[in-house]
């Protein structure tokens, strides 16, 4: 009996640390995961409107972060700089659709995908020429003093990331449910031909989709920049991660992209903490392969086999 007590205390203390550790992985994973989710959502929206995987999605993220840094540098206050950067990204997205995707609208989907790859190289090159090759740090929106929670720590910026992501998801849900354009986007995603017959201008839907995706990407790039830093080539990695998030959730599902993104972030943090920091980047891909083998429609996707 007497020997049991201290042992109990030790295990309790130990599990306390273990819980704090778990919580820390969860916080870190969710923060990064939320940005993956926003980027993934951008992929899903364009994919739904056209079956195009927009490889320039990551560049919207880059434009968001880098343009904010640049606008602050020329003396604008942070909120104005953020609005300016988002506007720049949206204009870029719309221009990309109008000037590069629309003229080739009759081309094969693969061709359109390669056009977006060309666009991403072009935009990255332009950013490198205009803004240089250095990394930049964006100031945190409300300080850097960590918040302590259950033995784990959280940056105020993480709350911004999670809060803004949540707000955007709610706003998008409202947009798709209650606005005419939102409903038209959903209809096009569901069946483009039928939507066309119903008088929906599917080309315009794609135009709007690019703007919307650019907005999501830019916001992701801005809110995460104080944590992760930003540079002209930051879009390569975040773009790829966003794509993986979208695939993880079943390409083309908005809910899937959000869950996929959060999941991806959490998996990475957990894998780094519990399995192997060397192989943490491989874990999501192993999961993707397993899903494709055993659950081919993804976690939230539509049926795997298409109708004739």
């Amino acid at each position: 009996m007497g020997a049991g007590r201290p042992l109990l205390v030790i295990t309790a203390g130990c599990s306390g640390i273990m819980f704090a550790e778990f919580l820390q992985y969860l916080f870190s994973g969710m923060t990064i995961g939320a940005t993956y989710a926003l980027v993934g959502l951008g992929f899903a929206i364009i994919y739904n409107a056209s079956h195009v995987i927009n490889f320039a999605q990551g560049e919207f993220v880059m434009i968001g972060g880098m343009a904010t840094v640049f606008l602050i540098h020329i003396g604008l206050p942070l909120p104005v700089a953020i609005l300016g950067a988002v506007a720049l990204a949206v204009v870029t997205g719309l221009a990309l659709e109008k000037l590069a995707v629309e003229p080739a609208r009759n081309a094969d989907v693969v061709t359109l995908i390669i056009i977006t790859i060309g666009a991403s190289i072009f935009l990255r090159g332009l950013a490198q020429v205009l803004w240089g090759k250095e990394f930049f740090a964006l100031p945190a929106f409300s300080g850097n003093d960590p918040i302590h929670l259950g033995g784990a720590t959280l940056l105020p910026q993480s709350l911004w990331v999670l809060g803004i992501t949540l707000a955007i998801v709610v706003a998008l849900a409202w947009f798709f449910k209650y606005t005419l354009i939102g409903k038209a986007i959903l209809a096009t995603a569901c069946n483009a031909d039928a939507a066309k017959m119903m008088g929906i201008n599917t080309q315009f839907i794609l135009f709007i989709s690019f703007g919307l995706s650019a907005l999501l990407g830019a916001v992701a790039g801005i809110i995460v920049a104080p944590i992760t830093l930003t540079s002209y080539d930051v879009g390569i990695m975040l773009g790829l991660k966003g794509f993986v998030a979208a695939v993880l959730g079943g390409l083309g599902s908005a809910v899937g992209a959000i869950v996929g993104g959060l999941l991806l972030g959490i998996i990475e943090a957990m894998a780094a903490g519990y399995i192997s920091s060397d192989y943490k980047d491989a874990v999501p891909f192993v999961i993707i392969l397993l899903i494709l083998f055993f659950l081919p429609s993804g976690l939230f996707g539509a049926r795997g086999t298409e109708r004739v």
Binding site: A100, N106, T111, I114, G118, A119, I121, F122, G125, Q128
Partner: peptide, 22 residues
């Protein structure tokens, strides 16, 4: 030099915009 990416991306895009079949 630094303009390599811009030009490369532009060539890729323009070629496929004007010759979508390759």
């Amino acid at each position: 030099e630094d303009f390599e990416m811009v030009i490369f991306g532009l060539i890729l895009m323009l070629t496929l915009i004007f010759m979508p079949k390759g």
